[in-house]
């Protein structure tokens, strides 16, 4: 593509990463007292807060009740100050409705909803700073929040975006790379079984490259899952020290 060189001849990207290198992931669980589960996650410069309420009785329209499993209700919003240009509507536009829908689908696949019939689980995610990979950061943050709420899941859900430049897959795209006309693929993975909870791809890519790209995305997701696992373990250790066990 014209303009930016996304991958230098030496194999470095704009922000100095290698092709398969992830951005630094930092996370904390249990950031709010009021919520049943909450988490804060930074992936490079993208920052997200996730809050989980539930499982609780159905609120709002009761007609949505499912008799055999829980309803998952997601809301994705972006803080007005999250992008370079101030956002007018933090949520409710087409793109964020779509994002909420995707989050919902991802967690419907991962959470053991059949354990909570006739109830509802709310997942609210807010992007505080947006620097690419919004969807994957939201999924990762929400996973931690769901774990913090103690809701059983089949496995961690880890998501990652992967781009394809010069026949090389780039893991965890940042904003500049996403905007640079790269064909990008977002994938949410349950790492243990290698199951894909959500797959989404934009822009053109030859069929033959799909496999390499998916392979790269899955490796990246597994990397994320390791970090998340560490965070959860550390959090549990801290909590158990506090409660004196």
């Amino acid at each position: 593509m014209a303009g930016l060189e996304l991958l230098s001849d030496q194999g470095y990207r704009i922000d100095g990463r290698k092709a398969t290198e992830l951005r630094k992931v930092q996370a904390r669980m249990g950031v709010f007292a009021q919520a049943d589960g909450s988490a804060y996650l930074e992936q490079g410069n993208t920052k997200a807060l996730a809050v989980v309420y539930g499982p609780h009785e159905m609120r709002g329209s009761r007609s949505r009740t499912l008799h055999d499993r829980a309803v998952i209700n997601c809301q994705y919003s972006m803080a007005t100050f999250s992008t370079a240009e101030r956002k007018r509507r933090p949520h409710g536009d087409r793109k964020s409705t779509e994002m909420s829908l995707h989050l919902k689908q991802t967690f419907e696949a991962a959470v053991m909803t059949q354990l909570y019939p006739r109830s509802q689980i709310d997942i609210y995610v807010k992007i505080l700073q947006s620097d690419g990979g919004n969807y994957s950061v939201c999924v990762n943050a929400a996973t931690l929040a769901v774990i913090d709420a103690g809701i059983p899941m089949r496995d961690y859900v880890c998501a990652c975006t992967v781009g394809f430049v010069d026949e090389t897959p780039l893991a965890d795209l940042c904003y500049a790379e996403e905007g640079g006309g790269v064909s990008s693929l977002a994938l949410a993975l349950l790492p243990r079984g290698g199951q894909i909870a959500l797959l989404q791809m934009d822009a053109r890519l030859h069929q033959d490259h799909l496999e390499t790209l998916m392979e790269a995305a899955m490796t990246a997701c597994k990397g994320v899952s390791k970090v998340l696992d560490e965070v959860v373990r550390q959090h549990l250790q801290e909590v158990s020290v506090l409660t004196g066990e």
């Binding site: 829908l101 995707h102 689908q105 991802t106 419907e108 696949a109 693929l185 349950l190 079984g193 290698g194 199951q195 894909i196 909870a197 959500l198 797959l199 989404q200 791809m201 934009d202 822009a203 053109r204 890519l205 030859h206 069929q207 033959d208 799909l210 496999e211 998916m214 392979e215 899955m218």
Partner: peptide, 29 residues
């Protein structure tokens, strides 16, 4: 979504299912 040059233009999974990589590859074929 694909074109006749076998270029994938978009992929979207929905509905809360678990897919395996092999299934996606087969579908693309």
């Amino acid at each position: 979504a694909m074109n006749k040059h076998r270029e994938i233009c978009s992929i979207q999974s929905s509905g809360g299912i678990m897919l395996l990589k092999e299934q996606v590859m087969r579908c693309s074929k």
